[in-house]
Each structure stands twice: as structure tokens, then as C-alpha cells.
Amino acid sequence: MNDKNSLTVGSGQPLGEGWSGWATQYPGAMPKLYGAREIAEVNHHPDEGQRLIFLSEQPAQAVDLPYSLDADPAGIRASVCDVITGTLMVGAQGHTPPPAGHWAEAFWNAARADATAQAVDLGKFREPIAAWSKHCAHSIQGYESYRDIDLPDWMVERRQQVRKCDQLLALIDSQAVRNG
């Protein structure tokens, strides 16, 4: 039975730990493996730009060194930052939490708590806005049919305030704004 580090050829005979042999290769192409130098030389066409090369595959030796972020060629810092940024975004939106116990769970919970703390209950502004709208409407009562050009400036301003109050009340009552 072959172990995972053992290579096989043809009928599946193991070649042992690692492989070495001769190959030919055209520039920009994968090499053709032949094994024995004599066989590779017979199949070698230098006049066509093909190279004759010796290849050797040695099993990787396990190295027990401490991990260093500074020496990480895979860019784990960028990957971790991407995960944290994404987790903060979806946490603030309140969806797609990481699995329980996952290291990113703390970031999701923090973003969720921050978003909840910043939510404003706009419903508490409904009563004062409605009262101001009623006051403004009452002060210009009887002049509804007049054009703005025919009214004094203070009445035009009151009409505009009534319109703005109506827009705010509609926004507060709509589903477009989170009403705590």
C-alpha cells in the first residue's frame, strides 16, 4: 500500500520517498518526465528550443519554528483584516453571525451592540412635530387659498413649516426609518 508521500509510475509501483529524474521542456510549457537520462536525451530536441533538465522532488521536511506574522508570505494580516471588516459590517446590519465560539463572534457582537446603541427612536419626536404642525396650520388658517406671492413672508414660512412637518411625520410613520 502506498503512503501519501510515495510516488508511483505506470502500473502503480512506488518510487520511494520523492522522485528525481530527467525531463525535457519547451519554454513556457510543462516538462515531460522521462526518468533515465538516456531516454530523455533520445527525446530531446534542442534545435526546437527544448531544454534537457534534471528534476528532483524531495519530501518537505517539517520545521518546528514559531509562527511570525512579519514573515508570513500568504498575507494572513490582510486576510484577517478582511474577515474582521466583513464581520463588523454584517454585525452592524444584524445578519449572518459567525458560528458560536468562532473567533470573529466577538467582533460581530460588538458591531451589533454599537448599532443598537446608536439607533434612535424617532417615535418620540412625533408628538412635538405634530403639535408644531398644528400650531403653524392654525396661525395661517383662512389663507389656504391664497398664493404664496400674495401672503406676508411669515405666512409663507409657516406654510413651508407645515409641509416639512408633514414630511417628517410621514417619515416617522413609514417603515423607512427604524422606530424603536
Rank of each mutant, 00 (worst) to 15 (best):
M1E: 10
M1G: 08
D3K: 10
K4V: 02
S6V: 03
S6N: 02
L7V: 07
T8F: 07
G10I: 01
G10F: 05
Q13T: 08
Q13W: 05
P14M: 07
L15Y: 12
L15I: 15
G16E: 04
E17C: 04
G18F: 12
G18L: 06
S20M: 13
W22G: 01
A23N: 10
T24P: 06
T24N: 06
G28C: 08
A29T: 07
Y34T: 02
Y34K: 03
R37H: 05
I39W: 05
N43R: 12
N43E: 07
H45A: 05
R51N: 04
S56G: 00
S56M: 02
Q58V: 03
P59N: 03
A62S: 00
V63T: 00
P66M: 02
D70F: 07
D72T: 02
A74E: 11
G75A: 05
A78P: 05
A78I: 04
A78R: 09
S79Q: 08
V80L: 12
C81M: 06
D82N: 14
D82R: 15
V83R: 09
V83F: 09
M89C: 08
V90M: 11
G91N: 14
A92H: 06
G94F: 11
T96I: 08
P99N: 14
H102I: 15
A104P: 10
A104T: 12
E105G: 15
E105A: 15
F107N: 05
W108I: 11
N109Y: 07
R112C: 13
A113D: 09
D114S: 07
A115H: 03
Q118D: 05
V120R: 05
G123Q: 10
K124R: 06
E127H: 05
P128K: 07
A130V: 04
A131G: 10
W132I: 02
S133E: 11
H135R: 12
A137Q: 15
I140P: 03
G142A: 13
Y143A: 08
Y146D: 04
L151R: 03
L151Y: 01
V156D: 01
E157F: 10
Q160H: 15
Q161R: 13
K164N: 14
K164I: 13
C165A: 14
D166H: 10
L168D: 14
L169P: 14
L171Y: 10
S174D: 10
A176Y: 08
R178E: 14
